[in-house]
Computed example of a mutant assay.
Amino acid sequence: MQEETRWHAKTMSETVIADFVARFSLDTAEDPEPVRGRIVLSQKRLVLATGGSKTTIPLAAVFDVSVGHVPDELESFFNDTLTVAYERDHGRHTAVIEAGTEEVGQFKTLLFKAMLSGTPVRVKHPARVGGRVTDGEFEAGKIRIQPGRVEFCGVSEPFEVELSAVTYFQKQRREVGGDERTVVAIRHASEGQTVTSEFAVASKHKLNLLGRYFRLEYSEVAKEAERVDTSEREMEALVAIYSGASSGNLAGALGIDAGSAAMLLSDLEEKDLVDDDGERLSLSPAGKMLVSDRIEKVNT
């Protein structure tokens, strides 16, 4: 009780962002089997506590966060999880937290927000529109983490990137402010166009974490897109839908009869590449990624 009182007094000087009960496992513990305890997140630290012990992880020590991935030796114990990798005593360790799907999703956003919101960034947006390279320059701004998106603030034209709209992710070397630096290039949908934005963060540690946040949905969509085989005609249909074709004029756009267009559309829906709500056609995230890759190949 005395230990918990001291811990509570320390966190009173910080804003508590999240406080809930869940199961967790620490690779520093003698027994890796999960225990039930209290998870508290503040602006500076993550605390995992049980009745008899407490582990404090400074957010500055966290170098990676993954959702759904569990170390092999713990797979039999967990379902919906968030794994926090951190450095301590010249070593690398992990804490695996398990909760409901909704809780894990909310906590993930809060954790990245605590670690990254307000971070200074140099960003060029757009660096490319479709396949056309722009004459834009890198601007100084700040990032703000929100559920499912990243906002870039303080630049001449603030913008946001939806995680589900990211169809390309790669680290590159670019000249930024006269120095060659590592930047992250992302291709995403913006106002009906495919654009590429590039950004650099002075801290390599935070650049990696920001890249991880962008990849949370991108990685899953990329795996889904890789598993799908599409014919040339199906790709033509996806590009046509991306360009605004509807179920009513898809046949005309492709130069085929209505029956063939209906069968083609049905196949694309079965492959989860197209959504049809009865009023309009739209591409699924995997469909957008396939089209984005096709457009990039055509323009290079």
Rank of each mutant, 00 (worst) to 15 (best):
L116E: 04
R174P: 02
E180L: 11
E162M: 07
T134G: 04
V133W: 13
F112D: 03
P158D: 14
I143V: 15
V129R: 13
R173N: 09
E157V: 11
G118R: 08
R128T: 07
F159Q: 07
F159I: 13
P126N: 11
F169A: 10
R174W: 08
G141C: 06
E162P: 02
R122V: 01
E157W: 03
P126S: 12
V184I: 15
A189P: 00
E151K: 04
G154A: 15
V183E: 05
G192T: 07
R122M: 05
F138V: 02
S117A: 01
F112S: 02
Y168K: 09
Q146Y: 05
Q146N: 10
F169D: 08
A114V: 10
T182E: 11
R144W: 05
F152W: 04
P120W: 01
R187N: 11
T119M: 09
V155P: 12
P158H: 13
I145Y: 02
L116W: 05
P147D: 07
E139L: 09
Q193D: 04
I143C: 06
S117G: 04
E175I: 14
P147M: 10
E162Y: 02
K124Y: 01
P120Q: 00
Q172D: 08
V166L: 07
E157L: 08
T182K: 08
P158G: 12
V184Q: 06
E175P: 01
V150T: 12
G118Q: 09
K124I: 06
R187G: 15
V133M: 14
F152T: 00
R132P: 01
V161M: 14
F152E: 01
E157I: 04
K142F: 13
A140G: 15
A114S: 15
F112Q: 01
V176T: 06
A114Q: 08
F152I: 06
P147Y: 06
P147Q: 09
E191C: 00
R128E: 11
V166Q: 08
E191A: 11
I186E: 06
S156V: 03
E160D: 13
F159N: 05
A185Y: 02
H188W: 03
Q146C: 09
G148E: 06
C153S: 14
S190Q: 08
V166S: 08
L110N: 06
H125S: 10
R122N: 00
R174S: 09
E191H: 05
S164D: 10
R122E: 02
I143W: 03
K124S: 06
T119N: 06
V155D: 11
R149I: 02
V129W: 03
S156L: 10
R128K: 14
Q170H: 11
E175D: 12
T167C: 12
R149D: 00
Q146H: 11
R132G: 05
F169C: 07
L110H: 08
T167P: 03
A127F: 12
L163W: 12
T167Q: 12
S117N: 02
V121E: 02
I145A: 00
S156A: 13
D179E: 14
F112I: 01
F169L: 15
P158T: 10
E139V: 01
H125R: 05
E151H: 04
Q193M: 06
R122G: 00
